[in-house]
Nucleic acid binder design. Structure first.
Length: 155
DNA sequence: GCCAACGTTGGC
DNA sequence: GCCAACGTTGGC
């Protein structure tokens, strides 16, 4: 059973893990997501899905690269690690709470597609795009094929 | 089950 | 550094 390729936007703080870091390592497990909605989006991911890599909490927040989903969802190992910032005492090996996927570098954009430019496209992107919804903090966001195409056309 | 308090996110 | 918005926690 497979379905067509889906698209996502994933936020990262460049001080913690940037598009250049992803370019260097090639593939990275997306650890540390501790929000149920974001987790559920990762659970819906399939190998080969497209990812817009977004830099948050920085000088120019925006989309900086393209990546791909490189694994099926699996339990985030940091939830079991007492020494990790992401340790979750309520998670067990038998009943993990947090899943993640591996993400692979595809390319870095020639320039940052800034959040304020994305906002200018609000009408074309449509109502449901939570990146530009007021107060939204969701770090893993579904993107439609049309939104994907539009956003990358801004490069 | 309600809701106040608290912690976090993230743009500015 | 500020603060609005949101999610989670825990007392009742």
């Amino acid at each position: 059973m497979s379905s067509r390729r889906r698209y996502w936007l994933m936020k990262s703080e460049p001080d913690a893990f940037s598009i250049d870091d992803l370019a260097r390592v090639g593939t990275e497990p997306w650890t540390g997501v501790r929000n149920y909605q974001a987790r559920n989006h990762m659970r819906a991911m399939q190998v080969g899905d497209g990812v817009l890599f977004y830099h948050s909490s920085c000088d120019v927040p925006g989309i900086v690269g393209v990546a791909t989903v490189a694994s099926a969802p699996y339990p985030d190992p940091t939830q079991f690690d007492r020494k990790s910032d992401y340790y979750d005492p309520k998670a067990t090996q038998e009943q993990p709470r947090w899943d993640l996927v591996d993400v692979s570098f595809e390319r870095k954009l020639k320039r940052t597609i800034a959040l304020n430019e994305i906002r200018d496209q609000a009408d074309a992107l449509g109502e449901g795009f939570s990146l530009i919804q007021r107060g939204s903090r969701l770090s893993v966001i579904p993107v439609t094929a049309a939104q994907w195409k539009l956003l990358l056309s801004l490069e």
